[in-house]
Every structure is written in C-alpha cells, then in structure tokens.
C-alpha cells in the first residue's frame, strides 16, 4: 500500500510541479520581477542570478506538489479501501477539488500577493491560511460524501464561515505595484494552480489505477 501511494504521489507530484514551475516562469515570473522593481526602485537582477532562481523555483514547485500528491494519494487510498473506483476520471475530479481546497479557498480572502504589498502580520495570515484550507477540506469532503441536507448545510458553513470572520484589509494600503499587475498576478496564479492540480489529479488517478491492476 505504501509503495503504491509513494509511486503515485511522486510521479504525479513531479508532473504537476514541472507544469506549475514552467507555467509560472512563462506567465507569472515577469510580473513578479516587475513588481520587485516597483518595490525596491532598483533594476532587474542579472540573467545568471535569475537562471539560478528559476531553477530553484521549478525544484521547489516539484517538492510542493509531491507534498500535495502524498496527501491526495493517501486520501485516494482511503476512499479506494471504502470501495471507490480510482481512475483518470476520478483523478480529474480529485484534482479540481484539491485546487478548490488548497488554492481557491485561501485565495478568496488571502489572494496571491506581489512583493511590495501592504505588510500585515505574517503569522496571523499563515494561521488564517491553514484555517481556510482545513475548513474548505472538511466542507468539500462533506459535500461529496455527505448524504443529508443537514450535512449540506454544515458543508456550506465550513466553506463560507471562515471568510466572514477572516482577516480584514489593513486600514492604510501602501502596495507599491500598480493594481493592473496585482490583478493579473492573482488571476494567473489561480489559473496556473488549476492546471497544475488537474495534472496532479489526472496523473495520480492514472498511476493509481495502473498500480492496482498491474502485476503486484
């Protein structure tokens, strides 16, 4: 079982991480670098430094999506034990659900920010990030596997509730990048997140199925 989970998670994580990393470099990195010139008032870093930085970004992205992949494969295994069929189509749905829980839900109140955004208490935002993700995970899980209208109500409360009391915008906004850049960055970060999660889910579903049906 552990071998199946690890194989599934690492293959899917590598594919999704490389996808996310490359899409980041094509669609997001230039916006981020431009925002940094507004933040610091300095010129762009030299090419050699950027190459190193970009390579690190792709590697870290692979590590991150392997982490997501491990959680995803573990939950697939859990549902597989309960008799659910796990394949490419189910993987697609798992991936979209994962995107909604891990990327879209926290972004609803804590959107991806460019460097130079108004600084607020980091620890507080990190705690809220965890709360948003955990409550969305519970909400989506109940939405999918719940059966009664009461459970549907609990799911809705878990999905919406934390955002009613979540972090507020600071009174004074001092973000240095133009809003056009910030809007483009946030929107594209969600788009890249969705694509990467779809790759994660689909590859995980395919590998899991193969591991299950192939020779043990």
């Amino acid at each position: 079982m552990l071998r199946h989970i690890l194989t599934t998670a690492l293959l899917a994580g590598a594919a999704a991480g490389v996808t996310a990393g490359l899409l980041h470099l094509v669609f997001l990195q230039n916006i981020l670098l431009l925002a940094e010139t507004f933040e610091t008032g300095s010129e762009r870093a030299p090419f050699a430094l950027l190459t190193m930085r970009n390579a690190l970004t792709v590697m870290v992205m692979v590590v991150l999506y392997c982490g997501y992949g491990l959680i995803l494969a573990a939950l697939m295994a859990y549902r597989g034990q309960a008799g659910d069929r796990v394949d490419v189509r189910a993987g697609l749905l798992w991936g979209i659900a994962g995107f909604a829980v891990v990327t879209l839900a926290p972004a609803f109140s804590l959107p991806a920010q460019l460097p130079g955004a108004t600084e607020t208490d980091l620890a507080m935002r990190q705690i809220w990030w965890v709360i948003f993700v955990l409550s969305a995970a519970g909400g989506v899980w109940i939405l999918v596997y719940g059966k009664t209208p009461g459970q549907g109500a609990v799911a809705a409360l878990l999905l919406v509730g934390p955002h009613l009391v979540g972090p507020l915008l600071p009174d004074v906004l001092t973000g240095s990048a133009p809003m056009e850049l910030a809007a483009l960055f946030t929107a594209r970060s969600l788009g890249v997140g969705l694509l990467a999660w779809i790759v994660l889910g689909v590859v995980a579903g395919a590998v899991w199925r193969r591991e299950q049906t192939g020779p043990a």
């Binding site: 996310a20 980041h24 997001l28 990195q29 981020l32 930085r53 690190l56 970004t57 590697m59 870290v60 992205m61 991150l64 990327t103 926290p106 972004a107 804590l110 959107p111 991806a112 920010q113 460019l114 460097p115 600084e119 980091l122 935002r125 990190q126 990030w129 960055f185 970060s189 890249v192 997140g193």
Partner: peptide, 15 residues
C-alpha cells in the same frame, strides 16, 4: 529565499 517565488505564486503568505 529558495521558496520565495513559489510562495508568492501559490498563495502562501510570504512576508
């Protein structure tokens, strides 16, 4: 530092 750009782009609070 290594994860900086990833944190920004994946929506983790960074600084």
């Amino acid at each position: 530092d290594a994860a900086h750009d990833v944190r920004h782009t994946t929506g983790f609070p960074c600084h």
